[in-house]
Design a protein around this nucleic acid. Structure first.
Lengths: 244, 244
DNA sequence: AACAGGGTTTCTGTATACAAAAGCTCCAAC
DNA sequence: GTTGGAGCTTTTGTATACAGAAACCCTGTT
């Protein structure tokens, strides 16, 4: 039973002794994020159970959580599948994130202490380095870390949790709808500018900054009206399962 | 095994033949909303299973969903309990809802068709009547229906879903923190004014209107710093289970 | 060649059994 | 009076068995 998670499962088993549903959620989530599990992929409970070496009970719990996170779809009596957000939903997710992240950074403006600002600055720097050296996965990781840090430090934790969700969802659709020719969705100026404005403490400036950043990101996507094609793929597409 | 849901379970069994996890989620949720299940109440899986006549599998699924909806808390190897949001979380939930619902109604302003406006008008009227006749449960039902309708009709469905969640969460904390002396959290002018502004089509006016409405609602709550007492009650309070 | 239909296979829904963890009770010791 | 701990009870975690639904495949017919 070979799978894309072979080594990680072995490592986890060695370290913790047992695979938890959280572990499965995490692995499936990142696989979707990195498009190793394309939209429409069937995720039968027994197959996942075999791969991770657990019974269906654990897999079911993981799938329920993934469904709550909008990563997979679960319909009664049908196999869970990797979700394929439509173009429309993509636009709406970005709009929602602009609203929520805008408010979060507005609340955060001028309220971050030096240590946190330094952390962000270092992440911005490392993102730029990763991009310069062509290491796109590492670049994405650092970029996500910046936004996750903002969500985590949100003075309003309810909004923070909502933002965490939205960051995941936008990441998935970015992976899905990235223009074919584009190597990276990197906007060199944006994160440094964000940092500057966060330091300045002007709420409305930061809100605007993040707003423009997210709008620019959305504009980098290919959201032309291929939606019908994508939808059909999601509904009819028969792809092989997760096992290789 | 007598319970607060006896008749509804009998009815559902007669109608559908089997109790689904959705049914359990719904019943627990409304019981929390109406404070028949106060915060901290233990919800052991077997007890719920006995009450609803299903096995633990179904109950577990229901509890997982309720946890995702922030209605109950689930910690490893511990009984699920009805959640007791803190004063701080209450304030944050209201702030989040002001942001999201404000945006939703701003998007909605002037875009509702006549039929929908008539529906809202009728709900506003019926809420007023229920309040006049002292029927508070019915008043709450109509009030919730108005806001749920707005969430459902949101042009941005992602924001709409988020609003649905926030309406539920604010309802729970309203029930929790309502001033002891207050019979009802009814603001006679607010919903009619909202309707007028929705008709007018002025986005910013509607946003302001809903913002003020939600702020007024929050101000009706007793959020004085008894939080420690509430928190202790939630953590240490041993109440009897759901069975009577 | 396209299509309908029946049987088989696959997969999910639910119940249940057993193991392990947490909580409780009661008693003894300080 | 309070603390500590052993043993019991309660409750969850996980695996598994079986039933039923959906999907698939293969055949026979038009």
């Amino acid at each position: 039973m070979s799978s894309i998670w072979q080594e990680e499962i072995a490592a986890e088993t060695r370290a913790v002794g047992r695979i938890s549903d959280r572990f499965i959620v995490d692995k499936v989530r990142t696989a979707v994020l990195t498009q190793r599990l394309p939209p429409g992929t069937r995720l039968p409970e027994v197959v996942l159970g075999d791969i991770f070496g657990v019974s269906r009970s654990v897999v079911r719990k993981a799938l329920t959580r993934l469904a709550a996170d909008y990563v997979v779809t679960q319909q009664p009596n049908q196999v869970a599948r990797v979700r394929a957000p439509s173009v429309e939903e993509t636009r709406e997710t970005f709009a929602a994130r602009r609203l929520v992240e805008g408010e979060v950074v507005a609340l955060l403006a001028g309220r971050l202490d030096d240590a946190q600002l330094v952390t962000i600055a270092s992440l911005v720097e490392r993102e730029a380095e990763a991009h310069a050296s062509g290491d796109e996965p590492s670049r994405i990781e650092h970029s996500l870390a910046i936004h996750h840090l903002l969500a985590e430090r949100s003075p309003n934790r309810v909004l923070g949790a909502m933002l965490t969700d939205l960051i995941l969802r936008t990441s998935i659709v970015i992976a899905l709808y990235k223009r074919a020719g584009l190597a990276s969705c990197y906007l060199a100026e944006d994160h440094p500018a964000l940092l500057t404005h966060l330091r300045s403490g002007k709420s409305e400036a930061v809100r605007c900054c993040i707003h423009d950043h997210l709008q620019a990101l959305e504009n980098l996507l290919d959201l032309s009206t291929r939606e019908t094609r994508i939808d059909l793929m999601a509904i009819l597409g028969q792809r092989e399962g997760v096992a290789e």
